[in-house]
Design a protein around this nucleic acid. Structure first.
Lengths: 341, 341
DNA sequence: TATGATAATGTTACCTGTAACAAAACATGG
DNA sequence: CCATGTTTTGTTACAGGTAACATTATCATA
């Protein structure tokens, strides 16, 4: 294994380039490039020699030149407000399940619900020449809209199916879902239902609106406990005590997500409050745990993973040149009564 | 706003380059480049003109040329076996919490526990010139090792602190943790403890070994229920019934993770089996839910998020040129008795 | 053997930002 | 008003693949 080529790659301690491989074989890098994309384009004797050289040097492809010349990276950017929320973990899973088999790479970013950070993250993702973007939330700054317009890549907004999308949105109607669950609880004779809200983002606001409208439509008085911090089991317990203090005859609790609901439910168990006899409790999203626990949690089942999957599928379709097939894809939710109502 | 430049960028419907900005201002792209990196390097009158032009055209930086010429992307690759497992979601969160503020980008990939897919994913991540890698699992193929060696970038392996790492490992001693919990249950007078194992990866094997050793050390007979499918609440319930059939006097159940344990616990509640009076149940990892439920789940608390955070911190440190400070970082676990033992 | 067709390989240019060096513009003091 | 130093701007080259075009080798057939 002689390495008598002029620019010995081992000396530079740099990963070998096509040129290094070509030098070793005694051909042009173009020939090696051809072999990599379509081995039959190269004569049979060269095929084995090139294959050996690639193996010998441990050649690793380099996408940088291609990204530079074509402005296409074969990567898609995924920008979410948070990774703490289990919902987004499931969305990511759905996205990856489509993106990875299609040979695309996922670039992940999050911005902690800050519009300023969102701008910065989008700029960063675009600076890597991502071929497309999946983003969350429906409101975006003018700067973000301009960047996306200038970048000229397909963008899909997820989570919300109501706000007019930049190009295409895939999500659920949060307001309608919250209305439906509230109405369902009212029909089961609950009259003093309190809403627990955390992380006051756009979707939470929609849900609160749905809850309040349903209450008012039925001549009932809404009461909403709010905090801007993230939801958690313990927050659910705290809210329960707050609710009972503010409204001792509370007979129903509807939470902006399952975490709060489960926390509230456990707090009831500890306090000797019977669920659902004394108080009904409902969550939102239908995470695995809510579908397995005792008692089964009443919840609004949302298609988180499917949302990610669909978003990825539509994005890939558009990367193949297809037009936007449907501006808004409104996914169905399902009211699950469980055993806690 | 006249656009009298020769190669009108609007015509090509391509995002503007530094050249486009420079043309608009009437300077060289080098001057614009200087302004972007350090505005003071440019005369005051030009500063405003360039800033305006950048704004006008909606210039978005392009990292591709820099990645090409420096072979540095300011992105780090994160390769995990699965995104389904909640453990990995928490690890990702830990990684992102460090990587993002440091101005690095995360490229996420997963390989579904297939060694072949792992090779492919690593090659892909390297083809994007990631500056460093965080990977999971301790066994890697020769090809993977060679690729990593050739790439010459820092690599950190997470999850396991026992196997000799390629360069640096950050994790826990799964065998010791499983031994400790088993021993703890035995000390609480449990004698017929069954182990529930799913997803038979390396870490699960370590845990089984710890469990079996503890049982044998105490003169007890181990019994392990195994499946290669992913763990879930329902699987925990299924396993419970299998265990009671195979060993009716089972008095303890130790699960390879919390999902299984919670599933088994709920199944006990439904079957009228008292926990922990009739059967003790322990999980592994200590997810939020296990720290909130009723009864509190006994579990081995592992520092998942911290593992990700530390991995990212050490990786960044090495990207700044620091050497590997500690080949293996063995993070502490904690036996939490909860109320289910 | 010449000829045209085809297959195999080579050459050149390009993608965009920036390091490194070069030149021009400007300021200051003698 | 020149010499000198400093600030500001310009020029050139480069990173590593590949598209597009050019050339050379190969082969079958007249």
């Amino acid at each position: 294994m002689k390495s008598a080529d002029k620019k010995s790659p081992t000396m530079k301690n740099k990963r070998p380039t096509l040129q290094d491989v070509a030098d070793l074989v005694g051909v042009t890098k173009m020939t090696v490039s051809r072999f990599l994309r379509n081995p039959d384009q190269v004569s049979v004797p060269l095929q084995t020699k090139i294959a050996d050289a690639l193996e010998d040097l441990g050649y690793i492809p380099n996408r940088a030149p291609d990204i530079l010349s074509k402005s296409k990276s074969h990567a898609i950017g995924v920008l979410l407000p948070s990774l703490t929320n289990q919902v987004f973990a499931e969305v990511i899973r759905g996205i990856e399940s489509v993106v990875e088999p299609a040979g695309y790479q996922t670039m992940l970013a999050h911005y902690g619900y800050s519009k300023e950070a969102e701008e910065a993250r989008i700029a960063t993702l675009l600076s890597y020449n991502v071929d497309g973007l999946i983003i969350s939330e429906s409101y975006h700054t003018e700067r973000v809209r301009k960047m996306l317009a200038v970048a000229g890549i397909p963008v899909i907004e997820i989570m919300d199916s109501v706000s007019p999308p930049i190009e295409q949105a895939i999500g659920i109607d949060n307001e309608a879902a919250a209305y439906a669950m509230t109405d369902f609880m009212i029909k089961r004779d609950r009259k003093k239902i309190v809403y627990f809200a955390a992380r006051m983002d756009q979707r939470t606001l929609f849900k609160i609106k749905g809850y309040e409208t349903a209450m008012l439509d039925n001549g009932l008085t809404p009461l909403c406990l709010k905090t801007n911090s993230a939801s958690s089991f313990t927050l659910g317990a705290t809210f329960l005590h707050d609710a009972l203090q503010q409204q001792p005859d509370t007979d129903g609790i509807f939470c902006t997500n399952d975490d709060l609901a489960i926390g509230a439910l456990y707090a009831c168990q500890k306090a000797g409050i019977k669920v659902p006899q004394d108080i009904s409790i409902a969550g939102f999203h239908g995470h695995d745990i809510s579908r397995a626990m005792v008692p089964l949690l009443a919840t609004v089942i949302t298609p988180r993973e499917e949302m990610g999957r669909l978003a990825a599928e539509h994005l890939l379709s558009r990367l193949q040149g297809n037009p936007v097939s449907q501006k808004i894809i409104d996914l169905p939710f399902k009211i699950e009564a469980g055993e806690s109502i």
